[in-house]
Write a protein that binds this DNA or RNA. Structure first.
Lengths: 155, 155
DNA sequence: TCTGAAGTGTAGCCATGGCTACATTTCAGC
DNA sequence: GCTGAAATGTAGCCATGGCTACACTTCAGA
């Protein structure tokens, strides 16, 4: 049983499209994960700025449940990528681009949460799941969510 | 504007529950990501075993879109965690635990895909999004998805 | 039986995102 | 003004999950 069956020596060159499609899907999922972190930071910074007028690394760290060192390191990456300017010891802000990203992320987050709530999922679970789900919802999915919610409202 | 406002020196001790809740949510999301990879591997190995009778590292790598070295390294981790036994050069299999996990993951995957399809999302987008979403759907959310689909069928 | 191609495994590199420990800066209150 | 506590920043460690390069096994076919 353990012995491998006949090697498909020649067949390896004939790559099946289905195989490639699946590989592409996984790649997409992997890259989504790398941008997810930045999106979370930007969204949180925007939230801190609007509610408190300032966004300090310590607050970011506390809200995300990571050490302040981790938060500062990631914020440095935000700066490198032109999303969040800020001078040392003076808190962090958002560039126009950062603000646009934050707005998009916030809208998307609310949409996903509303969708889950509409399905009858308890608030706490809906919030928690949305945190993970939102980074993997394509435009098509978001549109479908919006349409579902809209059709719901009309009844 | 850049100057930080009054430090809330004493208030730091009075941790808001909302803050902790959010931090907990993010932690949960982070840990979900670490198990997501193993789940994907186990699901794929199960699929290869049922359709082809064997699961070879190269096939796994090809389907996931990673190098064979990466696949082998992760499969080694599966072995360490008691999910997938296998002797060198003889393909990989699943322990009972691994099979149970695979079954759970497969059911969940299909549920998420069906849900997205039911919302009118195109098949390719539904498959791709499900790949990311499935790892973040709690029991409550899965139950809600199932109920939604069931109510749909009755109409 | 031999051999070479394909598959498998190993070594070692990189980036990311965690962490702790330590150094520096700021600023409220004396 | 000083000073000490809190915030901020830096250094360096670890694990994970990618990769390439190279070494070793297997086995189909000559």
């Amino acid at each position: 049983m353990a012995r491998a069956v006949k090697r498909k020596t020649g067949a390896a060159a004939v790559r099946l499209p289905a195989e490639l499609t699946q590989a592409r899907r996984f790649s997409k999922t992997r890259s989504a994960q790398s941008s997810a972190l930045l999106e979370d930071y930007v969204e949180l910074i925007a939230d801190l700025l609007t509610t408190g007028g300032e966004a300090r690394p310590t607050d970011v760290a506390r809200r995300l449940g990571v050490s302040h060192a981790t938060a500062i390191k990631t914020i440095a990456r935000l700066k490198r990528e032109g999303l969040a300017p800020g001078r040392p010891y003076r808190g962090v802000f958002l560039t126009q681009e950062g603000q646009k990203l934050a707005a998009r992320v916030r809208t998307r987050h609310r949409l996903v949460v509303d969708m889950l709530l509409a399905l009858g999922i308890p608030a706490e679970a809906a919030e928690a799941d949305a945190e993970g789900i939102e980074h993997h919802a394509s435009e098509a999915t978001l549109k479908a969510f919006a349409q579902f919610l809209q059709s719901r409202e009309q009844n």
